[in-house]
């Protein structure tokens, strides 16, 4: 009978341990990509924010109506949440990297490490789901904006 001090050992084979190692490396790469993306976004913010502000004030060059202002507003408002999301996801992925890296070594804490990995996977994918829903809503919003613009209600090119 296992106790919290002596958790049950799971019979993972060498190939399965190797898979844990590969998963940990994949987590590491994805986390690095998120951090680099956040840094690039921070750097690009210097370009995006003035451009968004200019669009809010002036609209699209050569366009009439508030379409440019709406897109500029989205650029300014969407910048910070995207940055925070990427940093948070990168941090969660670092946690996953560590757990799967430890799972790659045979030991007695496999079950605990797997349970901790599930908690981090839940965090990661809940953020992903929220991000996906927001992206879907934005796609719908932009498509309807495009539809309204094509009807001449929001202005358009020329």
């Amino acid at each position: 009978m296992s106790t919290p001090d002596d958790p049950p050992k799971l019979p993972f084979s060498r190939d399965e341990r190797r898979l844990f190692y590969a998963v940990s490396r994949a987590c590491g790469w994805l986390s690095a990509a998120h951090f680099v993306g956040a840094a690039a976004l921070l750097f690009g913010g210097c370009c995006i924010l003035p451009l968004g502000a200019a669009l809010i004030t002036n609209g699209f060059p050569g366009a009439r109506g508030p379409l440019g202002s709406v897109i500029g507003g989205l650029m300014v408002v969407g910048f910070l949440p995207l940055l925070l999301t990427w940093v948070a996801q990168g941090s969660v992925l670092v946690g996953l990297y560590r757990r799967f890296d430890r799972l790659a070594r045979p030991g007695g804490r496999d079950l605990l490490l797997l349970e901790e990995s599930f908690v981090r996977l839940r965090l990661f994918f809940v953020v992903e789901a929220i991000f996906g829903i927001v992206t879907l809503a934005l796609s719908l919003f932009m498509s309807s904006l495009g539809g309204l613009a094509s009807l001449g209600w929001l202005g358009g090119p020329g």
């Binding site: 839940r122 994918f125 809940v126 992903e128 789901a129 991000f131 996906g132 829903i133 992206t135 879907l136």
Partner: peptide, 10 residues
């Protein structure tokens, strides 16, 4: 559930 919602949204 979160994975399926994400896949549907994508």
């Amino acid at each position: 559930l979160a994975m399926r919602v994400t896949a549907g949204a994508m």
